[in-house]
Simulated assay, not measured.
Amino acid sequence: MPVNLDDPRVKRTRQLLLQSFMDLLEQKKSIYSISVQDIASHATVNRATFYAHFQDKYAFLECWMSDKFRKIVEMRLPDYTLTGTGDLRTLIQVTFEFLARLRKYMTPGDVQFEPMFEVAIQKEIERLLLRWLREKERVQASVAEEMIETTAEVISWGIFGSAVQWSRNPGQRTAEAMTRDVLAVATTVLEPVI
């Protein structure tokens, strides 16, 4: 039975599970080595409660990664919205910084989770862009919804893909230089929509 994500009890339990996982990670455990039982035990809930909220560990990890990325973005964009190219620059910069930090904490056993984390982060970027472009569209009322969705998807993958590639070998260029160049490309792609 699906849980109501707006229910305060559900929110508290999910936050408890996410915090439990963070606590276990801080104890120098790898993502791979932390089991559902470990998370549930540390959160003082049973496994059935965990599975009432998440289909499996992979769904939990995807939620955890989205939550982590969202919180980092919210620190730099307090309303968790984009209002212009300055905010877009901030989002790009945060993405580069976040992936660089994430890579430092990944162990060889955690590599299997990387594609899932990547999709979670890319989807968060896409959601932000989509909300911004739809808000712009309400003002303009001239761009088709399909074009808005495609633009958000292309730019989100462009930002994310550039950040992933850079995080694998950050010594070649600075994050600032990459942010500047990715922003230039993104604003060119955005031009017909905004």
Rank of each mutant, 00 (worst) to 15 (best):
K136A: 06
N46I: 06
E191W: 03
L5K: 12
S156P: 13
E149R: 12
P78Q: 03
R70D: 08
F117A: 05
N169T: 08
Y32P: 00
R76C: 01
A163L: 09
W132V: 04
Q172L: 12
G84M: 06
D79I: 00
E153W: 02
Y58A: 01
V94I: 13
V193S: 07
V164G: 00
G109S: 10
Y58T: 08
A144G: 06
G161V: 12
V3I: 14
R168T: 04
S35Y: 06
R70A: 09
T44Y: 05
K57P: 04
E124D: 10
A177G: 05
A43L: 00
L183E: 08
A163R: 14
A175D: 13
F60Q: 05
I72S: 10
D7M: 00
I34P: 00
R14W: 07
M65D: 12
A186W: 15
V185M: 14
I34D: 02
Y80T: 10
L82Q: 05
M147H: 04
G171F: 15
F117L: 11
Q122T: 10
S35E: 09
E153S: 12
T188K: 10
T44E: 14
T179K: 15
D38W: 09
L133M: 09
P8L: 01
K123Q: 09
T107A: 07
A177E: 15
R9H: 13
K71C: 02
S167H: 14
I121L: 08
E146T: 07
I34L: 05
W132M: 11
K57H: 06
I155Q: 00
A152K: 11
D38H: 12
V73R: 02
K57Q: 13
L82P: 13
E191Y: 03
D67M: 01
L183N: 07
Q93C: 10
K104Q: 05
P192C: 13
V36I: 15
T95E: 08
E126R: 14
I121M: 10
E26S: 02
V10F: 11
N4I: 13
Q122I: 02
M65C: 08
I92Q: 08
A141N: 11
K71L: 13
E124M: 08
F96C: 11
P115C: 01
M106A: 04
L88A: 07
N46Y: 03
F98K: 02
L99F: 08
F98P: 01
L24S: 06
M22S: 15
G171P: 09
P78N: 03
L88E: 12
A48W: 01
Q93E: 15
D79P: 04
E26C: 05
L61R: 07
M22H: 08
V111I: 04
S41D: 12
R134M: 10
Y80W: 01
T107F: 15
A43T: 05
D38S: 09
T44K: 14
S30K: 11
A152Y: 07
R173Y: 09
Y51S: 00
E135F: 09
F69C: 03
S142H: 03
V111K: 10
N169W: 00
D79C: 06
V182C: 14
I72R: 00
N169D: 15
M178N: 15
V193R: 09
I31N: 14
